[in-house]
Structures are given as structure tokens and as C-alpha cells.
Design a protein around this nucleic acid. Sequence first.
DNA 1: CGATCCGTTGAGGTGCGTCAACGGGAGTGG
DNA 2: CCACTCCCGTTGACGCACCTCAACGGATCG
Lengths: 245, 245
Amino acid sequence: MPPFDMWRTREKGALTEINPCGACPVRSLTVCAALEPEELKRLADIILTQRFESGHALFSEGDPADSLFNVTVGTLKLYKLLPDGRRQITGFLGTGDFLGMALNETYSYSAETVTPATLCRFPRRKLEGLLEEFPKMQRRLFSMAANELAAAQDQMLLLGRKTAKEKICSFLLMLSQRAAHRGQKENPVYVPMSRADIADHLGLTTETVSRTFTQLKTTGVVSLQEGSKILVADMDALYDLAEGA
Amino acid sequence: MPPFDMWRTREKGALTEINPCGACPVRSLTVCAALEPEELKRLADIILTQRFESGHALFSEGDPADSLFNVTVGTLKLYKLLPDGRRQITGFLGTGDFLGMALNETYSYSAETVTPATLCRFPRRKLEGLLEEFPKMQRRLFSMAANELAAAQDQMLLLGRKTAKEKICSFLLMLSQRAAHRGQKENPVYVPMSRADIADHLGLTTETVSRTFTQLKTTGVVSLQEGSKILVADMDALYDLAEGA
DNA sequence: CGATCCGTTGAGGTGCGTCAACGGGAGTGG
DNA sequence: CCACTCCCGTTGACGCACCTCAACGGATCG
């Protein structure tokens, strides 16, 4: 982390710094993992690193899609809304995740920070140019998209066919596994999002989420800890509960 | 369609022919759209064209993933199962769609024909080789994956937050729009899949699907026609009903 | 002509939503 | 420091959209 005087205000709600990609501590998790040192310099020329407070809207569904982002620190949520305000959170993103891909000229979902977060912003045109030049990066991006697609299919199974308890257990397992994948602690599970966010991700209400957590605590499967952490007492039981066994 | 004697049995349940990609009538819809004539020849060398009856399982979740497919004719379903048999159909595929992408060495979902179908089969190793050579095809595949991802997000919104009636209307609209995209009639909508398949796609039961169709018929929004076709009498009403307006 | 499958309809049950109340923590202003 | 207000999470009482179970008719097939 650079001293504060290296930061400068860039736009409302964002702090911007110049960050050399070569020194990026999370590069191995991102699209940038595919690049050689000199390619990284080219990349560093087009990106901005920005820090946002929690609850900051990066962009909304329908906005012109002229930026793409890489999460380096923090958690984000992506969501879609129905006209009457019903909301579906399609996914939570963390360190290494990439967002902002758009088919047309506008975003098809909204993105908002859940915790304070640091992101690398790529101007869309310039990134597309680099992708032409760096086929390795193209391939890396493709394999990340394939991963997201598999996760989306799991989520469809969850939303369409699982009970409330199975949904909560699957969600905790997913968080645990993703933390492990990023080299973080997999237990206790860090759960930074609110009950409302969890509900809108799992197709439930906050009340049902709360009741189900209480039930899991009562039966001794999990226990709550300081700082939005959930200790899984019986990981095997959680696996079984997640699939209805 | 070639005369029958051009077909030869290749494996149980499949008929195989040699098909020059250059003459493929649906190429513009597929991954192959990106290729030049001489590249198409290279592609033709590695593919098999196969025809399957309806209800044929192409592969199952967990099978070794050594083939990829392109749908030229017919409809398929992709699905995942829970241990107790609950099923979620993550999507229906038709002309031009691509399937079989796998992250590891095994498929993460099952695939089965809904109608008689014709597919081009690509051996995975050989296709990966060609993708290295043809970056245009790589890009085309990526944009198709991005499309699928957007569709998956729509489906999550549907599964998590829509009512039964909204689900059915959204489903009909989706079928209509996809037919239009393929240059087929968008109304009446061709609905080749069973009530059970629709239910497992929308997170409902067959009874609820049936009842909801009856309700839409009664209120004059749609009417059933011969040959699995549904005539949408009031397309605007269908749009409104699909989003709860 | 029985057997099977599929779609439809009815009657009744339930998992989760809705509505409401309450308590604790954080921020804010006096 | 307290008083006030939010916001969030929890819990209870109740209702309902959809599920479950069951019956039936039509189509297909050996």
C-alpha cells in the first residue's frame, strides 16, 4: 500500500493511483497472469487503479459499457432488477475476478461494492486492442468465462431445485471453496454481505435466511464469530446438507 | 439431406456422414462462421456429423469430456441432477449452438436430445489445436460464451425472483426471440419440449406448468396449435406478463 | 386391447413469503 | 454524555403460491 500522498482524487467516490502491474500482488489470480513482463507494461499504460467505499455503484444495467474491471481487493455484487424492484444478485466477485464484459454497447447488469474495494479499470476500446495483440490473454479470459458459466449453472440448480437450507449450505460451501482457491482461510468463512444480499442471491427473503442460519446454529453445524465470520463446525455435514443427502 | 446410402452406422444410436463444412447451411450461426474457406477444410477433416433420435443421451455429467458439438438441426437440453433425482435443465440448445466446453477432464452437466437432431462432433484435442491456429474462431467462441453467460444471468433472475406465470411468459418470449434470431418464425412459437422439461427448466412442477398454460389460454394471451406450436395472440401482453408489469 | 406416457384437472398440504414487532449497534446532534 | 434515529438481524403469527397426491382421458405402441 503506497503512502496516502501517492493517491489523488480522480472522480467522485474514487481514489486513483498509478500502479505498476509488475508489482501487482494478485496478478496470478487475474487475467493478467497470462502476460509477460513487457506486455504487462503495455497493460499498465491503459489501466487506472481505483479504490471505492462499500456500497458504491460501479455501473448500472443499461449504462454505456466503456470500462472493464479487475478486482484486486474487496467484494462486489452483480445484480439485475425487475421493474417493480425485485432483485436477483447473479454473483459475488472477489480478488482476481473480472467484470464488465458486455455484448452490446451497454451493461446487462449492475455492479456495486459490498466492502471497500480496489479495482483496475480498463478502457474497453484499449483492452480490445490489447486482446488482439495478446492471444494468451484472450485465452485466459475465455477460460475465466467458462468458469463463470459453470458457476452460473450450479446457481441455476440451486435456485430452481434446492430448499432454503440446501441453498444456505451450498452458499457457505461456495464461499469457503472460493476463499481456499484464492489462498485465504477456508474456515471460518468470511461472509461480508448482508442478509438482504444473501437472500437476493439465493432467491429467498431476509427472514428465511435468518431463520435458516439460526437453525444451522441450533443444530451445531455452524457458529457465528466476530467480524462477519462463520465457523463451520462440521464441514462434512455441510456438504451433505447442501445436496439434500 | 443426402440419400440414405450416404449414411453409415458409426456407433450405437448414431448415424454418421462425411459433410463438407463449406456447404453447411447453418454455418453463419455457428462457431464456424469465423473461418475462411481453406480453414473450413481443416475443420472438416476433424469433424464427424451425426444424427440422433429424440431422447438420446449425448453425454452425462462426469463423463470424460473428449468431444465438443455443434448443433445443426434439432433441439437439445442440458441438465444437472441432485443425488435424489431432482433435475435442473440449465438450457435448451438449437441450430448454431455449441456445447461440450469443459474446465477439467469431465463434463459438468448432461446433454440429451429433445427432438431428432444433427450435430457436428469435434474431438477436443484436435479442436484445441485448431483454436491455437485460428484466433478468429477463438474470439467467436468467446463471444458465444459471453452470450450464454448473459442468458444464464437472465435465467437466474427468472428462477430466483419470478412467479410461475412470469416464468412461463418469459420462457415463451425467449423461445420466440431465439427462433427469430435463427431466421425462423417467431410466432407461433415452436415448443418441442415436454411439460416435465419446461418445469425442470423453470423450477416448477409439470402440474403448475400445465395450469399456467391453461390460465394463459383462458385469458386469451396464447392458444395451442397443431404440432407443438403455441400461437401468441397478444405479444405485448406477454412482454408485460413476463416482468410482472 | 392392455400398457405406458403425457397432459390436464381437482383437492389438500406446506415451505416459504408477508407483515409486524423488537433489540442492538452505529451514526448524529444537542 | 445522552437521546434520537436508522439500519440490520431476529423472531413470531399468519397467509398463500406452489407442491403433492390422485384421478382421468387421449395418444402411441407392441
